[in-house]
Lab assay of single mutants.
Amino acid sequence: MSGYILFSSEMRAVIKAQHPDYSFGELSRLVGTEWRNLETAKKAEYEERAAKVAEQQERERA
């Protein structure tokens, strides 16, 4: 899992709640824009969280 995927899943729900009429493409475009504009430190937080999720998933598969 990547930081972007984690961010995307969280942001998509927020944007969808604010704009229920937006298409999947419109939501994706907005999520991508939000990610590109996100501060580097915040991106790093998402990357760290994603790494922890990936480690947990790997342990569960073992």
Rank of each mutant, 00 (worst) to 15 (best):
L27M: 08
F7W: 03
S23Y: 01
L30P: 02
A44V: 11
A13D: 15
L38P: 00
A50V: 03
K52P: 01
R29D: 14
S9N: 14
G3Y: 00
G3N: 02
I15G: 02
E26S: 05
E60W: 06
R49G: 01
F24K: 14
K43T: 00
W35H: 02
E47F: 04
E58R: 10
A54G: 08
L38T: 03
S9V: 06
Q18C: 04
E47D: 08
H19P: 00
A44E: 10
S2K: 10
D21M: 03
K16T: 07
L30F: 07
I15Y: 11
G32K: 15
L6H: 02
G32Y: 12
E55W: 06
Y46Q: 00
I15R: 06
A54M: 09
A13Q: 11
G32T: 13
R59N: 14
E34V: 06
S9G: 06
E45S: 06
N37R: 12
Y46P: 00
L6R: 02
V53N: 14
Q57I: 13
K52T: 08
S2H: 05
G25S: 14
A13T: 10
L38K: 00
T33G: 06
S9P: 00
K52Q: 10
V31P: 01
P20F: 00
D21P: 02
A17I: 04
E60F: 07
L30M: 14
E47V: 05
Q57S: 10
M1G: 09
A13I: 05
E55R: 13
H19M: 03
K42Q: 07
S28R: 07
E34F: 06
A41T: 11
K42A: 06
L30I: 12
G3F: 00
G3R: 00
M1K: 08
G3M: 00
R61D: 15
I15Q: 03
S23W: 00
Q56D: 14
R36H: 12
R61V: 11
E58K: 10
Q57K: 13
M11D: 00
L30V: 13
R36G: 08
F24V: 14
E10K: 04
E26K: 14
R29E: 14
E60A: 12
R59T: 13
N37C: 06
A41C: 08
E26L: 04
M1F: 12
G32A: 15
S9L: 06
Q57L: 10
E34Y: 13
W35E: 02
Y4V: 02
Y46E: 01
A41Q: 10
S8V: 09
M1D: 11
V53E: 14
S28A: 07
S23D: 10
E26D: 06
Y4E: 12
N37I: 04
A17K: 12
V53W: 10
E10G: 01
H19D: 03
I15C: 05
S23K: 06
L38V: 01
A51L: 12
E26F: 02
F24I: 11
A51C: 09
L30A: 15
T40P: 15
V14G: 11
I15D: 00
A62E: 14
E26M: 10
A41D: 11
Y46L: 01
R12V: 08
Y4G: 01
S8Q: 10
R36E: 15
R12T: 13
A62Q: 03
Q57H: 07
Y46V: 01
V31K: 01
Y22L: 15
F7D: 03
Q56F: 11
S23A: 05
K43D: 00
G3C: 03
E26R: 09
R29Y: 04
Q56S: 13
Y22W: 06
K43Q: 09
A51T: 10
P20Y: 01
I5C: 12
R59P: 11
A17S: 11
E58W: 06
V31R: 00
G32W: 13
G32V: 11
R59A: 11
Y46W: 12
A50Q: 02
A41W: 09
S28N: 09
V31Q: 01
E34N: 05
L27V: 14
T40Q: 12
Q57G: 11
G25N: 11
D21R: 04
K16Y: 05
I15V: 09
V14D: 06
A50G: 04
S2I: 03
N37H: 07
A51M: 12
E26V: 04
Y4P: 01
E60D: 15
A54V: 09
R36Q: 14
R12Q: 12
F24L: 14
Y4S: 03
A44P: 00
Q18L: 05
A51N: 12
M1W: 01
W35A: 02
E45W: 09
K52S: 08
Y4Q: 04
A50H: 02
A50T: 01
V31E: 03
E58M: 09
E60Y: 11
K16R: 14
E48V: 12
S8N: 08
R61K: 08
Y22A: 15
I5M: 13
V31S: 03
R29H: 08
G32I: 07
E10A: 02
G25W: 08
E47L: 04
K52D: 06
R59H: 12
L27F: 06
F24E: 15
R29G: 09
R12L: 13
W35N: 01
E34G: 06
K42E: 07
K42F: 01
E26Q: 12
E60H: 10
I15K: 07
E39T: 15
S28T: 12
M1V: 09
K16I: 05
T40Y: 08
V53C: 11
P20A: 04
E58T: 12
Q56K: 11
P20R: 04
A62H: 04
F24H: 14
T40L: 11
Y22C: 15
S8M: 11
Y4D: 04
T33H: 13
M11A: 05
G25L: 10
S9D: 13
L30D: 04
R36M: 09
L30E: 12
K43A: 02
A13P: 15
S28K: 09
A41F: 06
Q18N: 08
L30Q: 14
P20N: 03
G25C: 09
V14E: 13
G32S: 14
D21V: 04
A62D: 14
K16W: 05
E55F: 09
R36W: 04
L30K: 15
T40K: 09
A50S: 04
K52C: 07
V14S: 13
V53R: 10
E34P: 00
E34I: 10
K43W: 00
A13E: 15
S9T: 13
M1I: 09
L6M: 06
I5T: 15
V31G: 01
R29M: 07
L38R: 01
D21A: 06
Q56W: 10
K43M: 03
R49M: 05
T33E: 13
L38Y: 00
A54P: 06
F24P: 15
E10D: 04
S9M: 10
R29N: 09
G25D: 14
T33P: 02
Y4M: 05
K52E: 09
T40D: 13
T40V: 09
M11Q: 08
D21Y: 05
P20M: 03
R61S: 14
E47W: 03
I5S: 12
L38S: 01
Y4A: 04
E34H: 10
Q18E: 12
M1Y: 05
E26N: 04
E58G: 11
E47G: 06
A54F: 07
G32D: 15
H19G: 03
R49H: 01
K16C: 06
V53K: 13
D21H: 10
I5G: 12
R36C: 10
K16L: 09
Q56C: 12
E26W: 00
G25M: 11
P20S: 04
Q18I: 05
A62G: 15
W35C: 01
Y46S: 01
Y4R: 15
K52I: 08
A54E: 12
T33N: 13
A44Y: 11
M1S: 13
N37D: 06
A44F: 07
R61E: 13
F7C: 01
E39A: 12
R49W: 00
L27S: 06
S28F: 03
K52N: 07
I5P: 03
A50C: 03
Q57W: 07
E60R: 09
E34M: 14
I15F: 15
A50K: 00
A62T: 11
R59W: 14
V31H: 01
E10V: 01
E48P: 00
D21T: 12
R36A: 14
K52L: 10
V14T: 11
V14L: 13
A62N: 09
A17Q: 11
V14A: 12
A41S: 11
E26A: 06
V14Q: 11
E10T: 03
R29V: 06
E55Q: 13
V14Y: 07
S28L: 05
S9H: 15
N37Y: 05
K43I: 04
L38G: 00
N37T: 07
A54L: 10
R12K: 11
A17F: 03
V14W: 05
